[in-house]
Write a protein that binds this DNA or RNA. Structure first.
Lengths: 184, 184
DNA sequence: GGGATCATGTAACAGGTTACATGATTCA
DNA sequence: TGAATCATGTAACCTGTTACATGATCCC
């Protein structure tokens, strides 16, 4: 994401980390979490997270009271910081997982992260998310179609609108064809 | 754009400004250019450019030797900086306008800016750009389709791949349906 | 002996967002 | 009288990228 969060509580990267923390029963530390974002990890193809930013985000989650850290000194190693989600953090995560994204361009990253985490948290959550996202996209497509009729054809603004509509329809078709992923 | 330009010479916003300067015979100043990015301007729906960034980018174009400024003192006003494109800047612009974008996600902003400017600079340029962009997207779609067969169905990575393919196919279909926009 | 792994970060750089400052003139 | 227009910017903030630092241990 670029610039300010504009009302959003946190970035998709932060929610991804929060979600991973929430999914595991025991505490997890940064190096451990970083494996999920390396080649082969499930989220590697969706969101890119270098170690530097990962540790930065963990600090921010802690600062916001969404995660708690325990310092374990380890001989001959930098002390390990292990994190767990707080009740406050779990609430924020669930709120986020219930909220579909507002724009087609956010499907590619933010919605995919939500989908991944929602599915792991429970099939019902994922199903509701998908249904609500479908509604949003369907509304966007309808208003783009209206706009398209007003714009006609052959002009640049009409081409811009047509691209947006094509992308939105494609996302809709994709979401309709989604099977409940059973394996990860 | 996010983060580093990674080998790119400038941001789409800078090329948009450079292109607008190159298209007008006379010199243009910042306030004048800013109208193109306000509601009603052709580029308003494609790229967002607040005055602060616009003036910043103009300075950068000047610093890179792509544009030249003349200061005209105006009574009771801040002195007006009017810009023209240098030969060096015009070369950079033409190079950029010949280059299709490498990823589907860049179609929405960067390719649209290229298309708009290329069309105004000459129908041949736009035609070639569209043809080359088609090739790139077609190659991307083919490799996503390959990958999709390897991934099968029902898993999260398969769903991620399917979304990318759907978006790329949609961009391809859109580009095939593009008419030469005659009006702007 | 040399590289991968474990584990956490810092620092420099790049670039975008939002709000504000300035101050005259024109128009309703 | 007050808002919009002309015209250019600054400052504070937020986020991400890239490269590097540290230092032990494990494996070939």
């Amino acid at each position: 994401m670029v610039g300010t969060r504009r009302g959003r509580e946190a970035t998709p990267a932060e929610f991804a980390l929060l979600g991973l923390l929430a999914l595991s029963d025991d505490r997890r530390h940064g190096y451990d979490l970083s494996r999920e974002f390396q080649a082969g990890g499930a989220l590697a193809d969706v969101i890119r997270l270098e170690p530097g930013m990962l540790y930065h985000h963990l600090k921010r989650l802690e600062g916001r009271g969404w995660a708690e850290a325990t310092r374990e000194p380890i001989p001959n190693r930098p002390p390990r910081q292990s994190y767990t989600v707080t009740a406050f953090g779990a609430e924020a995560l669930d709120r986020w997982l219930r909220e579909p994204v507002a724009h087609t361009r956010e499907v590619r990253l933010e919605f995919l992260v939500k989908l991944y985490l929602a599915h792991l948290r429970g099939p019902g959550l994922a199903g509701r998310l998908v249904a609500e996202q479908r509604e949003i996209l369907s509304g966007l497509a309808a208003s783009l179609r209206d706009q398209g009729e007003r714009l006609g054809r052959g002009t640049f603004p009409a081409a811009v609108n047509a691209l947006r509509l094509a992308q939105t329809d494609a996302a809709l078709a994709w979401i309709d064809g989604l099977e409940q992923p059973t394996r990860t």
